[in-house]
Amino acid sequence: MKRVLITGSNGTIGSLLRALLGDRYEITGITRRPADHPATIGDIADLDTILPAFEGIDAVVHMAGDPSPSASWESVYRNNILGTYNVLEAARRAGVDSVIHASTNHTQAMWEVEQGADVYAPDDGRLLRPDDPFRPDSFYGWSKASGETLGRYYSDAFGLRVFCLRIGWVMGGDDPVAMDITGELVPPLPAEAVMARGRAIYLSHRDCAELIRCCLDNDTVRYGVYYGISDNPRQFYDISNAREELGFEPQDSAPV
């Protein structure tokens, strides 16, 4: 059974991974606050504190970070720039095989802003590809692009296998109908457009766990960047490389 370390194991995605993949992998965590699961309590901004947690680990799912598109530079620098370096460096030193880096669509969100709200319409065919240029809308988006760049370096230079997942919208309640759009108005859009956008980028808990399982079970990819969304009717993120390279087959879908 593969030994998997989840950073941010107490967060929304960390918790759903423990619930849905706990019988498939031997999972431990890193989290800042005391937890009800096996975890190192520590801050990823402190390399020495987290190093022991990487010993004997096969794969790391790196979820810890400031997840807010409105995060300040100071927070992004500490949690996402320093933190992601520390996680990759700890993984390298411990001889971990692979790291799954939680990235985001905010690495390219200015593409969306440029297209306008029409891009969310069900019959609109425009598609954003993972290898289109970085166009961050925030320090947060920039920090995740930076994590991808650092991941590429660790893959090329040190042989660490790195999967970057631009995770769509994983909702706490897992309900794409009753979505809570508070605080999601980045970019500023009318409520109806935010709902349409939410239905296009929805990623169910089950599909999120499946995408990460596909990465954990993959033995061939050296480095890849993938969007992660459910099988939604309107999709403007191209997930064809996740289907082809990882075998990702989403089971759920938002309504039209």
Binding site: P133, F134, R135, P136, S138, F139, G141, W142, A145, T149
Partner: peptide, 8 residues
């Protein structure tokens, strides 16, 4: 990093 930040 600096290029991506420039674009931002």
């Amino acid at each position: 990093y600096g290029e991506a930040m420039g674009r931002y």
